[in-house]
């Protein structure tokens, strides 16, 4: 069992948990994820690591309450425990001195992006960050992200804060970037990749398709990258954003939507 030592509500339906898991904390690196299971009848589901403190022995996750499992997770309180917390899984982000980096984070993934930015900044990069969310209420961690950004742009889908939408990125891309990194909703990562393509900026996306075991066994997380089928859990979760087949990925991510609706309806009924 893995105890919750800190809980924060960051935005509507968005929670931060700091969890005691010393072995995981000792090994976690930006870009990796954990797989959780809350109770004996629960499903296994992945969450990207948003921070780790090896000295305290804790791992931080930030998640949106969208389905039954994440909603159940959100209902846990400090001193409650999570049944299974397996990680770190997946490959870590490549941290090196690229030069000028564009970092684009959306929604709850701002936390995972911040974790990467801290390491990238330490490696001597200049970072232009764009943080987006549905609306003003859903923007998270802006002040922390500002500390690690040389330039920061805030955007919302409805324009309630900062820029409206993501297409203003076109103007920013006029500046020369050596590397782009994006993490957030798949459709956002797709748009960012499409926009960086004409500029020839190497672009890393961070994919989270459906997973079960998270260690390469099931193949549920397969993604077409270039001509190859790759498993996000063992070959990723980061891939070349210019080579991913997003239509297929987005379609596959929705496969269990009807089942999730049933689970959620019954859960609400309880």
């Amino acid at each position: 069992m893995y105890g919750i030592v800190r809980k924060e509500q960051l935005a509507p339906n968005t929670k931060l948990f700091e969890i005691t898991a010393p072995a995981v904390a000792a090994k976690s690196k930006p870009g990796q994820f954990v797989i959780l299971r809350i109770h004996e009848k629960g499903e296994r589901f992945p969450i990207t690591i948003a921070d780790a403190d090896p000295e305290k022995g804790t791992v931080t996750i930030i998640f949106a309450e969208v389905g039954k499992s994440s909603t159940q997770l959100g209902k846990l309180e400090v001193d409650d425990a999570i049944l299974n917390f397996s990680g770190p899984l997946g490959n870590a982000t490549k941290i090196e001195k690229f030069g000028e980096i564009l970092c684009v984070g959306g929604g709850v993934m701002a936390g995972a992006l911040l974790y990467q930015m801290k390491a990238l900044k330490k490696a001597g990069n200049k970072i232009t960050a764009i943080i987006g969310a549905r609306n003003k209420e859903h923007l998270i961690l802006i002040e922390e992200i500002r500390k690690f950004s040389d330039e920061l742009y805030v955007a919302t889908d409805d324009g309630s804060e900062g820029k409206e939408g993501i297409y203003f990125l076109k103007d920013i891309l006029e500046k020369k970037f050596d590397q782009a990194i994006t993490i957030g909703p798949t459709s956002m990562q797709m748009i960012v990749s499409e926009m960086t393509r004409p500029y020839g900026i190497p672009t890393t996306v961070n994919l989270f398709p459906i997973m079960v075991d998270g260690t390469g066994m099931c193949g549920a997380c397969r993604v077409t990258v270039g001509d190859e089928t790759r498993f996000a859990c063992v070959h990723g979760p980061e891939f070349d954003g210019h080579k991913v087949n997003y239509d297929e990925l987005i379609s596959r991510m929705r496969f269990y939507n009807p089942n999730e609706k049933i689970a959620m309806l019954l859960f609400d009924g309880v």
Binding site: K41, G42, E43, R44, K68, S69, V212, F255, Y256, P258, N259, E260, I262, A263, L266
Partner: peptide
């Protein structure tokens, strides 16, 4: 994951 007992168990299968 005992998907044959969905939705008693949370993991679905189609």
């Amino acid at each position: 994951m005992k998907a044959y007992k969905f939705p008693e168990y949370d993991t679905p299968i189609r």
